[in-house]
């Protein structure tokens, strides 16, 4: 048995979204099982299956260092504070 990730796309304009996963013996069976398990109530009008073995997966440490870089997170707070201060000084 292989594991497949199931993606559904709704109403044309939306992007494909991950719907879940399933186990099946081959591609044809995976498609048919996905149809009954994830799309039997017309939850999507397009379907993609990806064999999990074909996913390119980064390990846990791969993106973790990027979580500790405050200099990349400009929420505008300091600029807003400065503009507020200048407005108050000029009023």
């Amino acid at each position: 048995m292989r594991i497949y990730e199931v993606f559904l796309k709704k109403e044309g304009k939306q992007e494909f979204r991950h719907a879940g996963s399933l186990e099946a013996a081959d591609d044809e069976l995976a498609l048919l099982l996905a149809r009954e398990n994830y799309a039997r109530r017309a939850e999507g009008d397009r379907i993609w299956l990806v064999d999990r073995d074909h996913l390119v997966v980064g390990d846990d440490d791969f993106v973790a260092p990027n979580a500790d870089k405050p200099h990349r997170h400009n929420d505008g707070g300091r600029v807003a504070e400065r503009r507020q201060r200048i407005r108050e000084e000029n009023s």
Binding site: M1, E23, A24, L33, E36
Partner: peptide
């Protein structure tokens, strides 16, 4: 015999 088939068969 397996979850996916269980649901698919009943859905059919």
């Amino acid at each position: 015999p397996f979850l996916e088939e269980d649901l698919a068969f009943a859905s059919i």
